[in-house]
Simulated scan of single mutants.
Amino acid sequence: MCSLAQRTEPEVYSPLGKAYFARPDSTGVIAKADRALLDGGEKADLLLAAARARDQFLRFADSIPLYTRGLQAFPDDVRFPRFRGHRLISIRRFDAALVDLKTASELAPASFDVSYHLGLAYYLRGDYNHAAREYTRCLALGDKPKPEFLRGMPEGWRSCYALDDDSRVALTDWTYRALRRAGKHQEAKQLLDRITDSMAVKENISYFKALLFYKGVRTEEQALGSPQNANAISTIGYGVAVFHRLEGRTERACDLLQRIVNEENWSAFGLIGAETDISRGLCAPVKK
């Protein structure tokens, strides 16, 4: 079992050289999950619970080995490569994440969450064509009724079939960015035809606002104003920054990217995208 003591070393260094740390567990969540695992034995659900308890406090250096134990003990359980892949993205190990999420996709090809994170791993590696292809595959199933049986899908997981509006806007936002960065601007524009003010979006408001901004029915001020949660600036801001960059407004894009990388939630995907773009020279001065 991993130590319960608070780690003093960083969980990860960002591509920009910034050290990121875990949060303390002052509520005993991790200890409770560990006791259940010790008492209940090496069961998949208990291993998963102990790992995810650590994830709540950004203790990925401790959660990833638990996911690894689960993957070794239960190789056909999609939850372990799916969640380990997610947390490998969190610590900026995109290549390793891609391996896990491909495995997860083979186990549960209709999983929305697997497709979402697999496309993200491709995107963050700079492989926009494969990211767009994966996202588009899932979106294409969204209008079809959900089959009675889906291979490898745990109970309660979202599928790519019969997408609700919350799932659709999350997937569409990343698909739009990937298509545009792959140079497929017309395909990206066509995605926005499905995005309307009347959509029943309850949770993924940030993605929804970004899409309405791309479509031209929200201003930047309207999109970025009144964030709903701690991740909103990273999510909306990153989408707006990518849009500005693709429209040739590099200075405005980089202003936003720099703001995003100074946000506190270092595991937010928008922040990871922003620092990755900056580290790859997107905001480097043009040599004359």
Rank of each mutant, 00 (worst) to 15 (best):
M1T: 09
C2L: 12
Q6A: 14
T8R: 15
T8G: 11
E9P: 10
E9A: 15
V12H: 13
P15M: 11
P15W: 07
L16D: 13
A19R: 14
Y20E: 10
Y20G: 05
F21P: 09
P24Y: 11
S26N: 13
S26D: 13
V29Q: 15
V29T: 15
V29K: 14
I30Q: 07
A31C: 10
R35W: 03
R35D: 11
A36N: 01
L37H: 02
G40F: 06
G41H: 00
G41F: 00
G41K: 00
K43M: 02
A44T: 04
D45V: 09
L48C: 09
L48A: 02
L48D: 06
A49N: 12
A51M: 10
A51G: 09
R52P: 04
D55E: 08
D62K: 13
S63R: 06
S63I: 03
P65L: 06
Y67A: 07
T68I: 04
G70Q: 00
A73D: 05
R82M: 10
F83T: 01
R87W: 13
L88S: 08
I91M: 11
L98N: 01
L98G: 07
T103C: 07
S105W: 04
L107I: 07
A110S: 12
F112E: 05
F112Y: 14
V114S: 08
G119E: 01
A121P: 01
Y122Q: 07
D127F: 03
H130D: 12
A132R: 06
R133S: 15
C138G: 02
L139M: 06
L139N: 08
A140L: 07
L141E: 11
K146V: 12
P147V: 12
P147G: 08
E148Y: 10
F149W: 13
L150R: 04
R151C: 11
G152N: 13
M153I: 14
P154D: 10
W157N: 09
C160I: 08
C160T: 08
C160K: 08
Y161D: 06
A162S: 15
A162G: 13
L163M: 09
D164I: 03
D164H: 06
S167K: 04
L171R: 04
L171G: 05
L171H: 03
T172Y: 01
T175H: 09
R177G: 05
L179W: 07
L179A: 04
A182V: 07
A182H: 05
G183V: 06
H185M: 04
Q186R: 15
L191F: 05
D193S: 12
T196Y: 02
S198A: 10
M199I: 02
M199Y: 00
E203L: 08
N204R: 01
N204V: 05
I205S: 02
I205R: 03
S206Q: 08
Y207D: 02
F208E: 06
L211D: 07
L212T: 00
L212F: 03
Y214M: 07
R218P: 03
L224H: 01
G225F: 04
N229K: 10
A230L: 14
A230N: 15
T235E: 13
I236F: 05
V240K: 00
H244W: 07
H244A: 08
L246T: 05
L246V: 00
G248M: 00
G248W: 04
C254V: 04
R259I: 00
I260V: 03
V261L: 14
V261F: 12
N262W: 04
E263T: 14
N265A: 15
N265F: 14
S267L: 06
T276N: 10
S279C: 11
G281D: 09
G281A: 12
L282W: 12
A284E: 14
K287Q: 13
